[in-house]
Design a protein around this nucleic acid. Structure first.
Lengths: 128, 128
DNA sequence: GTATTTGCAAATCGTTTGCGGCTTG
DNA sequence: CAAGCCGCAAACGATTTGCAAATAC
């Protein structure tokens, strides 16, 4: 099953990666997989809540394995735009703020997307 | 110049709209424009800071005219996912939180995207 | 042998670009 | 005539789907 290969690669990558990225890594690793399959497994992981999704600035969808703690627990990310590495962050104040604003303007079924992008210490240093 | 037509339509729409959307409205209005032109003008408006950009859940880029007050002033949006209408909102606490988190993890060149989606009062009501 | 997984090729879809034609000053 | 605007047609890049072959149970 290619599923495990996809999962392993995504886990090994350790950060947010696009389907294309994972596909490239698998191929580079000599593995024989189809792009379609990669997309399907990534989707599945996301559906099951085993992977988090973040859409990058270019509009690409990126995935990252998330620990069971994070699973089904509302949180946001601080993502390195250079290497994809990410920290899980929380902000009760933000949640409250979003809800308050929505109420104030009479909006219902509120949802929000909050992503913080930056360059991690390692990547900043590597930029010598 | 088709530019004014695009600007007017976007302004009239009063909310966040995709290029395709604006194009459709113009055509429906009997106007003769090319999709390419719509994209180009929308891009230009965004570049000049005369329009705000929000990428919706489907990954489509949507634009909305923004007042001069909003121009070049950092703010976020509370967007109605049904009709595109939006309110400009601010959250000093959120800005601070993002910066703090980034510092805490050693990330530099911090940026963030914060969008709040909901269903506005009118659309909620219309759902009778 | 029936259900599931796989992957190639083709189709979608939003968006961008090449480029010749038209407009304007 | 030169500079800028237009828009058709083609190119693009990410993602999805049809479908038949390969595999699993």
């Amino acid at each position: 099953m290619q599923g495990s290969a996809v999962r392993e690669t995504l886990a090994d990558a350790g950060g947010f990666r696009s389907a294309q990225d994972i596909y490239a890594r698998l191929r580079a690793d000599g593995q024989s997989v189809g792009l379609t399959t990669v997309y399907r497994h990534l989707q599945a992981l996301a559906d099951q809540g085993r992977a988090d999704i973040v859409r990058n600035a270019e509009g690409e969808v990126t995935y990252r394995m998330c620990g069971e703690a994070a699973t089904s627990h509302h949180h946001h990310h601080l993502v390195c735009r250079a290497c994809g590495r990410a920290e899980e962050i929380e902000g009760p104040a933000v949640e409250r703020w979003a809800r308050t604003m929505a109420e104030k303007f009479g909006y219902t079924e509120v949802e929000h997307t909050v992503e913080v992008f930056g360059t991690c210490a390692a990547c900043t240093a590597a930029r010598a």
